[in-house]
Structure formats: C-alpha cells, structure tokens
Design a protein around this nucleic acid. Sequence first.
DNA 1: GGTTCCATACTACCATACAAGTATGGGAGT
DNA 2: ACTCCCATACTTGTATGGTAGTATGGAACC
Lengths: 225, 225
Amino acid sequence: MDDRMLQPSGSAGSMVYQRLKQQIVSLELPPGTSLSEKETSLAFEVSRTPVRESFVRLAQEGLVLVLPQRGTRVSLIDSEQVEEARFMREQLEKAVVRLACGAFPEERLAALEHNLEQQREAIQRQDSKNMFELDEEFHRILFDGCRKSGTWNVIQQMNAHFNRTRILWLWTDPHWELLYEQHRQMFLAIKQQQADQAERIMMEHMRLSIANLPVLKERYPEYFK
Amino acid sequence: MDDRMLQPSGSAGSMVYQRLKQQIVSLELPPGTSLSEKETSLAFEVSRTPVRESFVRLAQEGLVLVLPQRGTRVSLIDSEQVEEARFMREQLEKAVVRLACGAFPEERLAALEHNLEQQREAIQRQDSKNMFELDEEFHRILFDGCRKSGTWNVIQQMNAHFNRTRILWLWTDPHWELLYEQHRQMFLAIKQQQADQAERIMMEHMRLSIANLPVLKERYPEYFK
DNA sequence: GGTTCCATACTACCATACAAGTATGGGAGT
DNA sequence: ACTCCCATACTTGTATGGTAGTATGGAACC
C-alpha cells in the first residue's frame, strides 16, 4: 500500500502515467498547465520515451491536449463534457443500484458498511482527500458487487472533467455530511431491497454534484473552456 | 508521396492506430492473432515508435494485450465484458432515445431517415460491411442529436468485445431485415414522440444482439477467453 | 510608431541503437 | 530415453539524436 506511492506499477511509462493522472485529477496540475516531454522527463528522471507514452494515454482520456509541434497542456474543463459525464453516471448508477437491490453479495455489503465507517472518521478528521477517495470507493464497490466493474472503469475515463468540478465545488463548499447521509441511505435501501427508494436517492446524489456549475465557472474562469 | 494512406489522419502513429483498430474490430485480425512491434513496423513501413504508440492506445481500449518482454496479441473476446458492454449500451441508449422523443433537431431527424434509406439499399445489395457501418451510424446520430456524442465515443471504447460478437453473429445469421425494422420503428416513435414505445423497442434491439452468445462460443471457441 | 521579416529557441514526431526479460531448441550429461 | 543447461533468437522497454513545424523577440524597414 505504501509501496505504490513510491513506485506505482511496473514500467517507467506506467509510473509516469499514473502519477501525472493523479496530479491532474486532483488539480495539483491545474487545467491549462503546459507540459512538455523534455521538462517532464527531467522531473521524473526518465527519458522522453516513457513520458511520451504517458502523454498518449492521457490524451486518449482527454486529460491532456497534444498540439503537434506546439506543445501539450492539461485540458481545460469542458462544461458540456461535465454534463455528459453526469448524465452517463446517472443512468448507469441508477441501473446498478437497482441491480444491487435485487442481488448483492454479503461480502460486498459488508465492504460498503466498512466504507461508511471510514467516511465518518474521515469527516471527523476533516480529511478531504481521503473523503474523496472513499466516495469513489463506495461507488466502485457498488459496481463491483453487481459484476460491473468494467463499466466503472469506462466511466472513470469520462470522469476526468466531472471529477475535477466536484473537487472544485468541494473546495468552495464542503458538504461531506450530506454526501455521507446519501451514501448511508443508499446502503440501507440496498440492504432492505427497496429499489425505487435507492434509485431516487442515487438520482439526487448525482444531480447534487452538478447543480451550481455556473458558480464555479465564475470563481475559477481560467480552469474552464 | 504516400498515396496508399487513404485516410492520412495526421501523424504516422494515428494512421497505424486507426488501421489496426479497424482491422481488429472487423475481425480481419482475429482474436488471438499475435502482433509484434517490429513486424507491424515493417508492414506499415514506419519505425517502431509510432507502432508502439498505437499499441499503447489499443491496449488502453482493451483491443490488444501487451505482455512485457513476451509479445502483443489481439485480445480474445471476454463474455463478461460483452455482457457488460451490452448492459451499458442498453441503459444509455434507452435514456438517449427517451431524450430524443422529447426534443430532436429536425436536421438530425432527416439524417436518420436518410440513413434508413441507405440501410434498405445496403440490404438489397447484401452489403454486410456497409450495413454494419450504417447501423453504427444510426445510433451515433441518435446520441449526436441529443448532444451526447461524447457519451457515444466512450461507449465505443467498451464496444470492442460487443461489436466483435455482433459481427460473428451476423456471419452465422444475417438478420438485417429485423434490425432495419427496429430502426425504422424507433425512427417513427421519435418522430411521434412516443417515449415508452421507443424505449421498449430499443431494449429489444439491444437484447437481440446478445441472445445466443453460447452458440458463438461453440462455433468459434478459439476467439473467446 | 507600426509593420515585416528572420534568426533562434522552443515543441512534438520519428528513427534507431541498446538494454533487459522470455521462449525455445539443441547438445551435454546421466 | 530423459533431464538439465545454456546459447540464441525472439519480445517489449528505454534512451537519444535528428527532423520538421511553430511561437517569439528583435532588427530592419516604411
């Protein structure tokens, strides 16, 4: 667990890719930041080849924009793509949580409960970073329990823009308690197999994250397209 | 210079990527085919670098499997991923066709109608390849008309396995007339804004494509995981 | 002052050489 | 005949030099 922080996984290319992705999604590398193969290769102490490989992968996910012979930049947040990602997640999460109400492995249900406890602790510690990770983890467990983990991975690819706005909003207005409460209610609904109830909460949960996008565009105009 | 590049989308890397992807999805390169950077670079008359770049992108989409220091091969079709892709498409296409029944640009509606005409002609010509393309195009127009083209692109990434089974099934049982009829009925439902009707047809349309996956696994066992 | 042109310093793209891991086939030893 | 070992020919991973396209700043000119 600690080792992956130092040397994430396998090849140098994968390492650079994972580190850059984490830095971009966490806004440590703000939208619009210009990168370059050479500069990045120096920073990570590898050659340009694995850096270039990571750029290709990041570009495919829309996290960076490569302009041939001109440069590479962290992509700006595109409001339309944010809305699309939210739409996509709403549809799929609704369907998944409904599946979960029909059948959900006992072990995964326990994992959800454990995750909820961790969320409560993270909120008490005011640990936003951990809280965000646990939020992601909660939904991942949902998909995994329904044997739809591949779907979750695909969602992740489009979530680049969506997640960054979520982080921005949580900077301006930490509303972890509400998110926690929604997670808890979803857990109960699944446990009691109340599909309609679960789907309704999930819908609110998803729409919550998008409500005031205009506010964010005004507060952080340089981050948006 | 290089007239053989019929679709020279910019860089050599992109060219190789597009060509390989097309060959893989169309089963021209069957699942399990082993590739190699060197061999491919010779075939496309480029160096290993752009080939490697294309491999990275294809691997990210799950179209090829790269085993470090061992080789690269076209990925086998994974039944679970096929089912997941179908699930994903069903949820998203249902939601989109419902949106379309609420509001759909006149111009896009005309595009659908034109597409239907082309489908009929392709069926008469027994042009399976064109028919498949028109099928894809039909659904793409749907997403595009609802301003969800980004969603369609993400779907495409997971569709690698799903599409290959669809092609396999169409090899064994060409049922273009039924697909055309479903497309036509969806078009009518959208035009008359009958959301429930449209959603129902779309659901049947999606489930049709998956019905007899066991038959395919028996007929083409070497293509499946 | 304002415009044009060009040297320069970038950039990503590509080709190539080398490094390191892996499968394989043949020969030595038993 | 069978096992083990190792040379060898693969594979992908990495480093690096060169190429072509692009932005930029300053000089020359109007």
